[in-house]
Amino acid sequence: MFNLEDKTALVTGGNGGIGLGMARGLAQAGARVVIAARNSEKSTAAVEALRALGSDSFALAADVSDEASVQRLVDEAAERCGRLDILVNNAGTTVRKPVDQLALSEWHQVMDTNLTSAFLCCRAAYPHLRKAGGGKIINIGSMMSIFGAPYAPAYGASKGGIVQLTRAMAASWAPDNIQVNAVLPGWIRTELTDGARVQVQGLEDRVNTRTPAGRWGRPEDLAGIAVFLASPASDFVTGTAIPVDGGYSIAA
């Protein structure tokens, strides 16, 4: 039910943080994982880690906010592997400023990296998934898809958009046996949140206090949900947005 042998997964931003945590889970379940990212040094290290788990993995460089680059990425991944079964849209960034201090260029930077990239990757992957007889798309949203923060207007808007894009594609592509779901991570220790702990005073303790699990998440905490949503176990699950946050979003 959770076996991903002979499946090919493309993970954007998969060379670190949540992306690598998910990629590890997919690799352990038997998938060949293709890492898409711009930092070649990190990608090389990520591929070595996945190969150590037995996955015939490799990395491709891409700018996921560029239409032509995305098309080349998806087509090359499918061609080299002979198929494409799973797409994880994880690439993301943020600019921590309130609306009145946010430049238009910064707004576009966040929206293009977080939301437009998912649209481009999904659109490029669709014919390959359909050719394979169906597939799985996992879009990475955020707890900011649920509620707002004064320092993350662009990030929150992009992640809210991820949920709505997920629902639209789930409804559209269900007849093609393509399930599309979103994962909403909470506070996970990554390079992205390292900056938040520095910039947002008292964040470390507030997260620990509010989270019922009593700790920050780790990238490996996302491995299980990735395998579930990528496997036959979730064949009747589509259009959902699943928090993985240790209970942070349900706490009073």
Rank of each mutant, 00 (worst) to 15 (best):
T12E: 00
N181S: 02
Q179W: 02
L104E: 11
P243L: 14
M22C: 12
W107V: 04
I162Q: 14
I35R: 06
P98R: 10
K42F: 04
A29N: 01
E106I: 10
G13Y: 11
V99D: 00
K42I: 03
T12I: 11
L50K: 06
L60T: 05
R130F: 02
M111T: 14
S145R: 05
W107Q: 06
A241L: 07
G19C: 13
L10W: 06
Q71I: 13
A251Y: 03
W107F: 07
E79S: 11
S145F: 06
P185W: 13
E204Q: 11
A196G: 01
D235N: 05
A59Q: 09
F147G: 15
V207M: 13
A91C: 05
V180L: 05
V207W: 11
F147K: 15
G246M: 11
G135F: 05
C122K: 06
G202V: 14
A37L: 05
A36D: 01
I146K: 12
T44D: 13
G133I: 08
V88L: 10
G133W: 12
V110C: 09
G217Q: 07
Q109T: 05
D112P: 00
L165M: 15
N15D: 13
G160S: 13
V33F: 11
R38G: 07
S158F: 10
V70S: 08
R218D: 09
I138R: 04
A170H: 02
A196W: 13
L203E: 13
A37K: 05
D75C: 05
F236T: 03
P243S: 09
I188D: 01
C121P: 00
V244F: 06
G195N: 09
D100R: 08
P232Q: 07
